[in-house]
Design a protein around this nucleic acid. Sequence first.
DNA 1: TTAGGGTTACAG
DNA 2: CTGTAACCCTAA
Length: 300
Amino acid sequence: MGAPKQKWTPEEEAALKAGVIKHGPGKWRTILKDPEFSGVLYLRSNVDLKDKWRNMSVMANGWGSRDKARLAVKRTSSIPKQEESAMAHSVVPSDEEIVDVKPVSVSSTSVQIPTSTKRSIVRLDNLIMEAITSLKEPGGSNKTNITAYIEEQYWAPPDFKRLLSAKLKYLTACGRLIKVKRRYRIVPAMSFSDRRRNHSLLFSQGRQRVSPRFDRDNFNILTKSQIDLELDRMRTMTPQEAAAAAARAVAEAEAAIEEAEEAAREAEVAEADAEAAQAFAEAAMKTLKGRNNQKVMVRA
DNA sequence: TTAGGGTTACAG
DNA sequence: CTGTAACCCTAA
């Protein structure tokens, strides 16, 4: 009578998968509160989300039975993780993105600015943001921890660290991340930037738009249409496939990253500028507090 | 609040 | 009866 068993609908599963991809696994409450999914998941609790995700994961892992005797390793180190990597390749949902992998092999001296930063790069950005957000480290996360997180959650290519380094540099240069003493923090999404406009201006010298678009309290890196596209695609994917897709995005990034590294080279200059700006900000702060006079100069 | 173990309802 | 999915309980 009351509640026999409320089975999960495909829509709910899709919303859950999307939520996990978006906010990362474990943040059930966040996913539940996200207006993007609350419409579908309003019947469910955070625990329900957790349980459902577990069920789906267990299933897709091939362990259809209750053989709890297994599952010994899940480390990415020694064991090559054939399952995931194999899936990452076999799944290949014949998308439209993997098509133009990259004909960069030709060393055309003309450094063509990437017509439009490939979407795969955006996805890698997303992973980085997810890592920093999930780690929740007070002073920001260093490269080691970010790498560890992503490698834990997803499959990563062999030279992933190198890719990540370039990407972090790039994000820092873009102003999406702030680097403070080897630690990376997500730049406040232009929220409470009322009287701090001067401050912001210092950091955002000559950079692209600060925020593409954002829904409510949730800042999005991907555009709405891209999200929809992903959602539609993920509707038919298992959580592992979704994770594999994310991993594949990283792999794709390897191809496109070469151009990103190109940008990163120039980014070093911007990074230096950013640090200089930060030094200036700190000095300015001291000046105001010490109300000394207008003579403080900074050089970095 | 979340992760994990455990329990119950339902389908084959 | 057996396996699965939703649900419940509890430690951290």
